[in-house]
Design a protein around this nucleic acid. Structure first.
Lengths: 212, 212, 212, 212
DNA sequence: CATGAATGAGGATTCATTCAT
DNA sequence: CATGAATGAATCCTCATTCAT
């Protein structure tokens, strides 16, 4: 029974189709926005019949929710990886997180678009993103860092994390317009690296342990 | 001589209509995005005949460009106001700029939406934003501040300005999702103020003149 | 009283305006057809305000009727000129008429278009063209020519005139497509002249007086 | 194996729909002209959903091009039938062609309208009609006829063919207005037959073989 | 599962015509 | 007479979605 070995072949084929639709949808939604996305174009890009989309995802909205869910999963996965940070990382925790978020955006260049779409569509009816993600682990590291004098004791963990999320996100999403504004080509990797280093220095450069 | 007071009555009426369309368009575009915006809805909101939109702005695209131009003008005006900063402001230049950009977003709550739409529509064919705005004045202040030890001499003006623009923008555009992420209600004014203060401290708090 | 000398100046000006509208209408209708014609374009070409068209001609239909009337007048005028033909012209009456009709189309290159529009719009509601134009004069010349053996006595005047009207009209209106068909450039004047000569010879070339 | 008999059922259904659209389009375009034609009316007449028109023909223009192509095919088919003429037909070649072209217009009463529309729309962007149709066969017959004295040796084949195409076309397209002009009811079949006979006689009646 | 055909409710845009001054 | 503003009814075209096989 083939079914035992690899599952129902139809189901397997179905999964492949589903994946193809999904990938095409990510590209379409992120490049055109929700309203600008075209079901036909997704079907064509996925090289499947349009009807499949409706079979798998119900409607356009359902397809977008699936994409959005995936986006949510991506970020949760990334946050989960932060658990591997340990006490040794405390002194450079800020720089490390900055690096991690930048890497995340580089690995998922469409992330910010999907994410922003959700922000733009004021009347959201899509599931919330990780409501109760406590960041317990890195919060503890940060607080330990504060106690050790690595971080300003008057700066809350929330503000700390906020900047570290904001800067890579804004850089990724706005490098075009900011390149104009700053008359600097922010698309060049070395410019990005330099900028991030400098921002890291602004944020954490001069903090010294109290005993110093 | 009514003409002297308000210009040609017809023209005046036309301008009023144009303004009504424009205002409705800003609301529609910023809430629905370009593709999601409906010309009919704009006409209805502006309480004018749909055709007027085409008479005044050519087409939907032309209307959007006009809105985008206005957005561009807004930011240029704000930048112009920075000229009133003087040497006395150098020590707290960072905090002041942070404040100014936050005020700007509060005064123009739709700004980030229009701005982001432009970033989302990858293949832009709209006029660039202030191509060659050199920020000469505040750049000088910053450099003087570096010489005086107020700012890290290894941090470029571009990176300095980048964070100051990024943080208020990201706060304004992503407070919803970030509220979820940080399990903190970022919509509350006091939370915003505290966050900005803390971020100001992270960035500029510990910098000391070299002679210290 | 200026009025006595040149008529009401306003009326005079009005006539000029009317003429400008009319000329623009002829060009617009003949190049775009009735449905394809645009009142706005006519107003623009005539450099008058659109409203004037409605003041002078009632509506688009009224404007077209005026144009069509003019077309009708043109052909009546041409037919009237045929009265100057005399007995001396009988032997070459066919060639002369061919020439005249060709000249007419050259003098009024838009004539066939307006005329054809009327034919294409099946449900005509426009006044008939010269209902009772008897062509008495040239009919008499033709019949005298038949008696003298210049023309085939078994060919009616109607058939005679039909060909002479048909050929120049068809040449003028279909030279483009016929150039393709015949692989010959019918737009060249010498080609036209040669063709007409040859057709004249086909029609009347070998006719001889009976006594021959 | 129904497939063998009629092809794929869906395709067959599609073809039927396409045909219905096409037929309705021919009627609409030929009666109203290009600009006057209404896509909605075509859809209604074809009893199909309007969108099908766009699915099958792209747009209104594409639909017209299809109609025009068909017109082009019709005439090519007719020309192809001329190949069945042989040497025996040489003496009455003119009359035969006149007859054939008349028959063509009677079989395809809308032909001239579509054809004329193309002439009226000055800036054509539609495919040329039979670019290089040499009429080799009947040209040879004609030239042989000239050598045999049936046709005037000084009249080119082009002029010969021109009249034979012009007269039936003009009769078909202008019988209404010409009926007024000639005060004769050209719509009556016997009038048409008589007229064509007389024109045939004018053109070819008196030509005699040289040896006569 | 898969697919081409079909549909109805929009959606942007145009146009002849009228209004107000 | 003259004009810019305004209008409502189309008009072409699109899109998400469903049907039928």
């Amino acid at each position: 029974m083939a079914k035992l070995i690899g599952g129902d072949p139809d189901t397997q084929k179905g999964e492949k189709t589903r994946k193809r639709i999904f990938d095409a949808a990510v590209r379409e939604f992120s490049s055109k926005g929700y309203a600008g996305a075209r079901v036909d174009r997704i079907a064509e890009a996925a090289k499947i019949n349009k009807q499949r989309i409706y079979a798998y995802f119900g409607d356009k909205e359902g397809l977008f929710v699936a994409v959005w869910q995936h986006t949510s999963d991506l970020i949760n996965a990334m946050d989960h990886e932060l658990l591997d940070l340990g006490d040794d990382d405390i002194p450079r925790l800020g720089q490390i997180l900055l690096q991690r978020y930048n890497d995340f955006h580089e690995a998922h260049p469409d992330f910010w678009r999907i994410f922003m779409l959700e922000n733009l569509m004021g009347d959201r009816h899509h599931p919330r993103l990780h409501k109760d993600r406590p960041y317990t682990h890195i919060r503890e590291l940060y607080e330990r860092g504060q106690a050790q004098g690595h971080f300003d004791p008057t700066v809350s963990f929330e503000s700390f994390l906020f900047v570290l999320i904001a800067v890579p996100f804004f850089y990724t999403s706005n490098w075009r317009t900011m390149s104009d504004t700053l008359a600097t080509d922010l698309s060049r990797p070395e410019v990005k690296e330099r900028t991030m280093n400098e921002i890291g220095r602004m944020l954490f450069g001069r903090a010294r342990p109290p005993g110093e």
